[in-house]
């Protein structure tokens, strides 16, 4: 078993479109996420998760340029990440397939962790 980090990106444009959802829509979205992550946990593959709030700032370059907001150049925002245990990259990718961020044209980065032996 290897450890992978799944990082969810949502497109800033869709994040804006989704910036004023109704309470009912938020609950529906939440249930999708709980269902997806709950499913990974049920298979005994969940190794930790964290949420990132959509606020903060970004520090850039030798000039230490400070910009408000967590957006990177590509106007993508990282909403959170989770660690999963999987046999290989293919299996980790399969676990990522159910991520609800994909439905809003977001993406999931699947990265193996380097194990320090």
């Amino acid at each position: 078993m290897e450890k992978f980090m799944l990082i969810f990106h949502s497109a800033a444009a869709s994040a804006e479109a989704f910036s004023n959802p109704s309470p009912e829509a938020m609950q529906a979205e939440l249930q999708k996420w709980n269902h997806w992550i709950g499913g990974i946990a049920a298979q005994g593959r969940l190794a930790g998760t964290e949420a990132l709030l959509p606020t903060g700032r970004t520090l850039t370059g030798p000039e230490r340029l400070v910009t408000d907001g967590p957006f990177t150049e590509g106007k993508e925002i990282v909403g959170g990440y989770l660690f999963v245990m999987a046999a290989d990259l293919d299996e980790a990718t399969r676990l990522a397939e159910g991520c609800p961020a994909l439905e809003h044209h977001g993406s999931v980065e699947i990265r193996p962790l380097m194990v320090m032996a």
Binding site: S19, P23, M26, E29, L30, W33, N34, I37, G38, T49, E50, A51, L52, L53, P54, G79, G80, L82, P100
Partner: peptide
């Protein structure tokens, strides 16, 4: 509510 959505979606309710 948006903060709840962000946190609860990965940590559960």
């Amino acid at each position: 509510l948006l903060q709840a959505l962000t946190v609860w979606k990965v940590h559960g309710v």
